[in-house]
Design a protein around this nucleic acid. Structure first.
Lengths: 203, 203
DNA sequence: TTGAGTATTGAACTCGCAGTCAATAGATTC
DNA sequence: GAATCTATTGACTGCGAGTTCAATACTCAA
C-alpha cells in the first residue's frame, strides 16, 4: 500500500506547501491534517510522521510564512530621496501596496497573531518578526528626527518607527474585512499628512 | 435533579456573563460550553437550551461585546478645543488610553475579527461596528479638512477618519502582544506629529 | 394540597479528528 | 535476484466536545 518514495526534503516541502494553502483557506483552527495530506497527495499518517503533531506542523508553517515574508526593503530609489520625510512616505506607500497585493498572507499572519495570545511559542516567533520589521524602519526614522530634533523633542527613533508600523498594521486590519476599504484614499491622506510635516520642516 | 428556577432574562444574563468571561480567558475556539455552564452555575444542557448552539452563544456574546463597547465619546472638553487638529489629537490620546485600560476586551474583539474572516455573520456585525466607530471621527475630520482645504486637496473626511482609526487599530495590535510596547512613547510621537501639522496650519 | 406546566438536568449519543503503529511495498545494496 | 532497509500506508484507538432528549423537580395557580 505504501506509495512512491521521496527524499525527506522533498516530502517536507510538499506537505508544507499543502499545509500553507489549507491554512490560508481554512484558517489555523480549521486546518485538518486529513485535508493537508490530501492536498499533498500523501496519507495523513505521513504528515504526522514528519511533523510529529498538528501543532508542530502549524509551527513549521509559521516559520515558512515568516521566512518567505518579504522583508521590508528600502530600495535604492527610496534611499535616493533627499528629504527623510519623503523617504518615509515612499516607504509607507510601498508597504501599503504590498498589503493589498497579498491579502491571504496578511490574513494568515493575523490568524497566527491571534493564536499567539494563548500560545507562547507562536507569540515569541511573531514578536521577533515584528521587531525585525520595526527595526527596518529605524534608520529612516532616525533621519527624520535628526532633521528637526527640537520639534520632535522626546520622541525616540524607535518610537517613530513603531508609529509607522502601527499605521501600516491598522490599514491592514481595515483592509482585511472591509471590502470598501479605499487604499488609494488612505495613501492620499497619509501622503498629505506627511507633506504637511514636510512643509513645516521646510518653513 | 433540576435546580432552582429563574426567569429567562436572568438566566440569559447569567450565562452570557459567564460566556464572556470564559471567552476572554480561553479565546473563541477555546470556549467550551461545559466551562461556561460551570461558571454560570447551571448545567451545560441549559446553555444549549437558551442559545440553541455554541455558535448562537458566541454570536450573543459578540452582540453583548459590541453593545457594551464604549462608543467613541467626544466629550465637552474635547469639543471646546478651538483648534480642530488639537481636538483630533486629544481624541487619539483618549482612545489609546482606553485601549491600554481594557486589554482583555481588545483581545476578544480581535478574536472575533479573525473569526469574521470565515464567518459571514460575525463579519457583518464587526463591519457595522467599525463603521460606526469610524463615523464618529467624521465631524472632527471634517473640521480639520475645512481648516486647510488646499493642503488636503483630494482627501475626504471619511478618508481622514479612516486613517485615524487605522492608527488606533495599529497601536492596539502592537500593544496586544508586545509587553514592551510603550504607549507613552506612541502618544508622544503621535502628539508631535500632530503638533507638527498644527504648526503648519498656524504658520 | 394538588395538579399542570415548565425550567432544568445529566446521561447518552454522535461525530470528527489527532495521534499510534504494525504491516507493506518500493528502493537499494550486494 | 535475494536480502535488507525504510518510507509509507491506513486501520484502529481514544478523547473531547457539541447536541439531543426523556426524566425530573421546582413553581405556581386553583
Amino acid at each position: 500500500m505504501p506509495g512512491t518514495k521521496a527524499s525527506e526534503a522533498i516530502r517536507r516541502e510538499q506537505i508544507l506547501n499543502a499545509a500553507y494553502r489549507v491554512a490560508v483557506h481554512r484558517g489555523l483552527q480549521g486546518t485538518r491534517i486529513q485535508e493537508v495530506a490530501a492536498r499533498a497527495g500523501v496519507s495523513h499518517g505521513l504528515v504526522l510522521f514528519y511533523f510529529k503533531s498538528k501543532r508542530g506542523l502549524l509551527l513549521a508553517v509559521l516559520d515558512r510564512l515568516l521566512a518567505t515574508t518579504t522583508i521590508l526593503h528600502v530600495g535604492e530609489d527610496i534611499r535616493m530621496i533627499a528629504s527623510p520625510i519623503e523617504s518615509l512616505l515612499a516607504l509607507l506607500r510601498q508597504e501599503m501596496d504590498r498589503l493589498s497585493s497579498e491579502p491571504q498572507r496578511i490574513r494568515l499572519t493575523f490568524d497566527y497573531w491571534t493564536a499567539g495570545i494563548r500560545d507562547r511559542e507562536i507569540r515569541l516567533k511573531m514578536r521577533t518578526e515584528f521587531q525585525r520589521y520595526r527595526d527596518a524602519f529605524f534608520p529612516l526614522a532616525s533621519d527624520v528626527l535628526a532633521r528637526d530634533p527640537e520639534r520632535f523633542h522626546g520622541v525616540t527613533p524607535m518610537g517613530l518607527a513603531a508609529v509607522s508600523v502601527s499605521f501600516i498594521n491598522g490599514c491592514a486590519i481595515q483592509a482585511m474585512l472591509d471590502p470598501a476599504f479605499d487604499i488609494a484614499q488612505h495613501l492620499l491622506a497619509a501622503e498629505n499628512l506627511l507633506q504637511f510635516m514636510h512643509g513645516a520642516v521646510v518653513a
